[in-house]
Design a protein around this nucleic acid. Structure first.
Lengths: 226, 226
DNA sequence: ATTTGCAATCTGATATCACAGATGGATCGA
DNA sequence: TCGATCCATCTGTGATATCAGATTGCAAAT
């Protein structure tokens, strides 16, 4: 439960240098959430972040307000923002939404994802296996995020992609904690290769089914750590 | 293409007087968008709104920034915010998302919506018929919104509800214009009563199918007005 | 040693100000 | 009469100041 010294922009997703200050800070913070550099309950202070980024509190305030609106952070009056925690019920709700949305996206992506992207999916699956073996949560989450990103972006619906991405900022911190607490590696399953196979075979129905199952499986992980 | 003099809070959805200033203004603005009081292209100025609400520009900025993040408004540097317009492709994307999300919600709601709520749905269906006959777009949209609100809220997934509600703020302005330009009333269809019947019969599968069809029908409306 | 209380510090919320760029209308020229 | 140009005005962006409440750590008292 530390006060966050938030991430320099990651190479993997460097914030657009052209963007306005508020957007840059928003992107940097969100990425920290997605890959689990911040844990539920961590405090995030406007002034501290402003000093770290060398700007005034205004752009930081914008970024925090936006993340609060997305429920990735919780802000009480005159108290520091905190990384949102989740109740079991809330987690189930989120995974249900992701299941529906990413399931639909996978169904479409299966009919149109370019071969090069499919090959990237295979790579990422292997990287996830490796990260899992090392118990490297951050690396696993980053690869997992990119894997899903390729698929829900491949559906060609940018609005859907934006919504799903917002959900990852909420589940990231919790998944990070969950993975760290989860020592029984044998309970982990990697459904991802089967998803790739279905997409490569252009089997839209099966791709949807497997994607829904993969996301719902997170719910089981959640129950395991309560 | 007028500069907006934005709505006083509506009785139907009075912003919470307890809430912080920024949230109050956000809620008021979003309701204006949902019911189509603002049309695509209308400009929304920070200082003008601040004066109308009797506050400084700060809370208004928050509200506008948030609506921009939700893509209900578009903001270019040093130019007034505008109510976002939609390309046909974008409209199809949005209706696809709503279709998936509200379809899933209807499936759940059909198994658990209380009798009192079902009766309210019947009322609202009749009100929509009446509004349509009067060609009263704003009233129609308000009733339509409330109808869908009851169902997607009835699924008991508040996060899903919040996402869907954000989408209404984007389709509202465009639907308002579409309805006004749409004189051939005979092209309008009211699928809503059939949805109510399916829910009342606890036929989850059929409720989902009808809900998806109802939302997809909006796409047809869109094509009609291009 | 433990608890209570107080004060310095940190928090977000709002208002106000400064700035640079975009806009739009009026005026001047042909 | 039409068109170009320039200046007053409006725009969001960002920085700073102030305030009231929350937090926290230290000190004093039992």
């Amino acid at each position: 439960m530390t006060t966050a010294t938030v991430a320099k922009p990651m190479a993997a997703r460097a914030p657009d240098a052209e963007a306005k200050l508020g957007d840059r800070i928003y992107q940097a913070l969100r990425w920290s959430l997605i890959v689990g550099e911040l844990e539920p309950g961590d405090t995030v202070s406007t002034r501290t972040l402003a000093a770290e980024h060398g700007v005034s509190v205004m752009p930081v305030r914008e970024a925090l307000k936006r993340l609060e609106a997305e429920k990735a952070l919780t802000g009480a009056a005159k108290r520091a923002y905190r990384v949102a925690d989740m109740t079991p019920a809330r987690a189930v709700d989120l995974f249900q939404i992701r299941s529906v949305l990413e399931g639909a996206a996978a169904e479409i992506a299966a009919t149109r994802l370019p071969e090069a992207q499919i090959e990237r999916l295979r790579d990422l699956t292997r990287q996830m296996d490796a990260a899992m073996a090392r118990e490297d949560a951050r690396s696993y989450l980053a690869s997992n995020f990119t894997f899903h990103f390729i698929i829900y972006s491949g559906a060609g619906n940018p609005d859907l992609a934006a919504i799903v991405e917002g959900l990852y900022a909420r589940t990231g911190p919790w998944l990070s904690r969950a993975i760290r607490q989860f020592s029984r590696i044998e309970d982990w399953e990697n459904h991802h290769m089967r998803i790739v196979d279905a997409i490569a075979a252009h089997d839209a129905t099966e791709a949807r089914r497997l994607m829904e199952a993969d996301i719902q499986w997170n719910t089981k992980l959640y129950r395991g750590m309560i």
